[in-house]
Write a protein that binds this DNA or RNA. Structure first.
Length: 238
DNA sequence: TCGTAAATAT
DNA sequence: CATATTTACG
């Protein structure tokens, strides 16, 4: 009776949701000093013989903020298993990545050994949007799977997922470059929907992605697993 | 780890 | 059949 339905899981859900409550009363971003810049002026630092700050780069900042946000979210929402929801199949291992930001990454024994095969990731427009933004932010030079994945900070998203999508994305961009005119092909689906931002050497990546559930809505698995795609096996020998 | 090709699923 | 996503390989 029961056939294992090939469930796919869908990531994403919130688009540009910011927790204003946290920002209430706080100065605007314009008023704040860019975190990506050293708080201590170079001259002053030199005078005090302060060694060059470690890798306090945009990436680190983003990672840190992302981690903070993640932690806050968890603490704020009592039991919010904000999970991209894996299809049934017993996956469910919740594990927060506690990346130690101690300078250069040393041994990375993080091999996701989830016995369960994860369902196909569905790249929703939102996810793709996030992806594109991050890629544009990094620039073709630094837009590598790992970095992209980290900057996107989407729980459940793996490096492989990103790498795969990145491959297609690059092809899409390249293909379009050849055709200076003419809009994107409708067959490009997601890619066509997202205007490829210019990979200027400037960056501007918005707040980290929030795969968090809506306030009042459907089941917690709403944004998570849109478990509904049970397509039949189609074996066609054309 | 990254990039590309082939494989597989839908 | 085409597209999307995964898996294998260098």
């Amino acid at each position: 009776m029961g056939e294992e339905a090939p469930e796919e899981y869908e990531l994403g859900g919130g688009e540009d949701e910011r927790v204003m409550e946290w920002e209430a009363g706080l100065p605007g971003a314009d008023e704040l000093t860019p975190l990506s810049q050293p708080l201590v002026p170079a001259g002053l630092a030199a005078a005090f013989r302060i060694p060059p700050e470690p890798g306090r780069t945009l990436l680190d900042v983003h990672r840190a903020s992302a981690a903070t946000v993640s932690r806050l979210r968890r603490a704020s929402s009592s039991s919010s298993s904000s999970f991209p929801a894996f299809a049934s199949k017993g996956a469910g291992a919740g594990a927060d990545e506690a990346e130690s930001g101690g300078g250069a990454d040393g041994g990375n024994g993080n091999t996701n050994n989830n016995s369960s095969k994860r369902a196909r990731l569905v790249w929703t427009p939102q996810l793709h949007k996030r992806f594109v933004e991050v890629v544009a932010h990094l620039g073709m030079k630094n837009a590598v799977p790992k970095t992209i994945m980290q900057l996107m900070n989407v729980e459940g998203l793996t490096r492989e997922n990103v790498a795969s999508h990145l491959q297609k994305y690059r092809l899409y961009v390249k293909r379009m470059q050849g055709l200076s005119n003419e809009g994107p092909s409708p067959s490009d689906h997601i890619f066509a929907s997202t205007p490829v931002p210019h990979a200027s050497l400037h960056d501007q990546v918005p707040s980290p992605y929030h795969p968090h559930p809506h306030h009042h809505s459907y089941n917690n698995a709403a944004y998570a697993a849109t478990v509904s795609s049970y397509h039949h096996y189609h074996h066609a020998n054309h």
